[in-house]
C-alpha cells in the first residue's frame, strides 16, 4: 500500500518536478497535507510520511470525493492528484474557471473556498472536501446578472473574455471583504489576476461602480443622502 502510494512521487522526483506537481502527484489524504507539507519542508522525510500515515490515506487510484459546489453536493471518484480546477472543468463541466497558467499566477481559475478567493489550479479536489466552493456559475440568476457582472458589461471590462470569469469571482471576493474600497484599494486588491487583452481600465471602473451601486442600493438612490446625513 505504502509502496504504491509513493510510486508517483519518486517517479516524478527524478524528473526535477515542481512543488505543485509534487503536490499533485503525491497521493496523500487531506490531514497530512494541511498539517505538514504545505507549511513545512518541500519534501517530507520518509519517516514523517510514515508517522502521518496513521490518518486515512487515499490514492493513487481514484477515491470517492464529495464536493459542495454552489450549495450542491457532487460525488466523484477522482485520483487524489486531480486539482479542484480539473474536477470542476473536466468532471463537473463547470468551465467558467479557466486553466491558463496552471501555476497560481494569473487568477483565471479563481473560485471562492469558504469565503476566500483561491487559485483552484493549485488546490487539490480532495483538499476541497467539506468546504463551500463558490464558482462564477452561481452569480447570475438566469438572465439576471449579478450587479458586479452588470458593471463589467457596462464598463466593457472584457475583450476575449478568457480572464473575465476569474476576475469577476476575484472582484466579488474583494468587494465582500472591502465593500467600500478606495480607488487605491481596488487597484491593489485586484492585483492577483492577469488579463492579456488589457481590460484593466474597464475592470477597475466596474469594481468601483459596483461598490458604489451596492452602497446606493442599500440606502436608496436619490433619498436625500445616506445613513450619515
Amino acid at each position: 500500500m505504502r509502496d504504491q502510494k509513493n510510486k508517483p512521487t519518486s517517479d516524478k522526483r527524478k524528473r526535477g518536478i515542481s512543488r505543485r506537481k509534487f503536490l499533485k502527484g503525491v497521493g496523500l489524504g487531506s490531514g497530512v497535507l494541511s498539517s505538514g507539507i504545505l507549511g513545512g519542508p518541500l519534501l517530507p522525510e520518509a519517516s514523517a510520511v510514515a508517522q502521518a500515515a496513521e490518518v486515512e490515506v487515499a490514492g493513487p487510484t481514484p477515491a470517492p470525493i464529495e464536493l459542495t459546489v454552489n450549495g450542491q453536493r457532487k460525488n466523484l471518484r477522482l485520483e487524489p492528484r486531480v486539482t479542484l480546477l480539473e474536477a470542476l472543468r473536466d468532471w463537473l463541466d463547470m468551465t467558467g474557471a479557466k486553466k491558463v497558467c496552471d501555476r497560481a499566477t494569473c487568477g483565471a481559475c479563481t473560485v471562492i473556498l469558504d469565503g476566500q478567493p483561491v487559485y483552484s489550479c493549485s488546490v487539490l479536489a480532495i483538499e476541497s472536501q467539506g468546504k463551500n466552493i463558490q464558482t462564477v456559475e452561481s452569480l447570475a440568476q438566469g438572465d439576471s446578472l449579478h450587479p458586479l457582472q452588470a458593471a463589467f458589461v457596462e464598463n466593457d471590462a472584457q475583450q476575449c473574455g478568457f480572464c473575465t470569469p476569474g476576475f469577476v469571482v476575484a472582484a466579488k471576493a474583494f468587494l465582500d471583504k472591502y465593500p467600500n474600497p478606495t480607488r487605491e484599494q481596488a487597484r491593489l486588491g485586484l492585483g492577483g489576476n492577469l488579463c492579456r487583452c488589457g481590460t484593466y481600465a474597464g475592470i477597475w471602473k466596474a469594481v468601483l461602480e459596483a461598490a458604489t451601486g451596492r452602497r446606493d442600493s442599500q440606502r436608496g438612490i436619490g433619498q436625500g443622502g445616506g445613513s450619515n446625513a
Binding site: 468551465t95 467558467g96 479557466k98 462564477v136 447570475a140 463589467f152 457596462e154 472584457q158 473574455g161 470569469p165
Partner: peptide
C-alpha cells in the same frame, strides 16, 4: 453600445475550445 456577448463572458457561459467536452472525449 455594450458588447453584445458581454453577458455570456461575465457569467462564464461562453464556451471556448478549452471548455468543450464532446461525448467520450479523450485528452
Amino acid at each position: 453600445i455594450n458588447r453584445v456577448d458581454g453577458p455570456e463572458k461575465v457569467t462564464g457561459r461562453a464556451k471556448y475550445t478549452y471548455d468543450l467536452k464532446r461525448p467520450g472525449m479523450l485528452y
